[in-house]
């Protein structure tokens, strides 16, 4: 069996890998969306894995604030 890079399953793995893993640097000089809940809010909300992350309590605080702001500002459907 040879690995594939081109089908939909591969694409799902790729998105997961790029968003969830990869080197994370904690240095004053570096900003990353992973560890700073104040950035990439819209991006995170667009992710299907969002709900699970929230269930694990990782993003609870900012998530609550964000959903509130989001629904007030645009009247978007909040799941």
């Amino acid at each position: 069996m040879r690995p594939t890079k081109s089908d939909d399953d591969a694409l799902v793995d790729l998105v997961d890998a790029v968003l969830r893993t990869g080197a994370v640097v904690e240095a004053d000089v570096v900003i990353t969306v992973a560890d700073v809940p104040l950035v990439g809010l819209k991006l995170r909300a667009a992710l299907a894995g969002m709900k699970t992350m929230t269930e694990h309590g990782v993003f609870e605080e900012w998530d609550e604030a964000h959903r509130l702001g989001n629904s007030e500002a645009s009247g978007e459907r909040v799941e």
């Binding site: 790029v18 990869g22 080197a23 640097v25 000089v29 570096v30 900003i31 990353t32 969306v33 950035v39």
Partner: peptide, 11 residues
């Protein structure tokens, strides 16, 4: 060594 999406070095 791949970095996570949206990693930015300030400066």
């Amino acid at each position: 060594l791949p970095f996570q999406f949206d990693t930015v070095i300030r400066g």
